[in-house]
Amino acid sequence: MIWLHHVAKLYDTGPVALPALTDVSFSVDKGEFVVLSGPSGAGKTTLLRLLYRDERPSEGEIEVAGFDLVTLRRSRIPLLRRSIGIVFQDAKLLAGRTVFENVAFVLRVLGTPRGEITPRAFQALKAVGLSARAQAYPAQLSQGEAQRASLARAIVKAPALLLADEPTGNLDEDMAAEILELIKEIWTRGTTVLLATHRGALAAQLKRRTLTLRAGRLVKDEG
């Protein structure tokens, strides 16, 4: 599902370009649940951005969901993104639309047949336990609910891969555990998951394969 070969990333920031990633190689098979851990600034977000082709690697090769990201043409990026669901620390919901509309928006944007949109959006909301709040606006949601809505939006298009960047960063422990439980459920139904977090305890608690980044280098791959 994911394959990286000697990947390096330097952000172009004037005279002192510090590498955000250096010589990173690993692979993730279809159906795996992998935790990406490491302290703040280690390069987790950078790595995820490379995976959904928000950034290009400075060196090395990357393959995701069968796409070679080094040679991937700009016009084909949407195809790659369709097979990836993404959640961030902040839910990034559209404020002017209800929870349901936020989820349905994805399907509409992707040209899903009209008749499929409503059932699929509700199914996704049900999967995250948010059916009752479908007509609420983002401002009316708790942070945990907002994050669940954003999770519903990520999975509504049934992606093969779910990338989660600190999805519990804004949440207290209980809500964080709830979100992690949901992500695990999504994984059980066949989606490959890569979850980035800087909380070592959380990573340990998940008891899954964990890749550890430190200062842009992959220092551990265990579990």
């Binding site: 949407p78 944007v109 992707l110 298009k157």
Partner: peptide
């Protein structure tokens, strides 16, 4: 802006 960011993230084509 926000809308377009989401659109790009979920894989909407530039045309859409």
């Amino acid at each position: 802006r926000d809308e377009m960011e989401i659109m790009r993230l979920v894989g909407a084509t530039e045309r859409v």
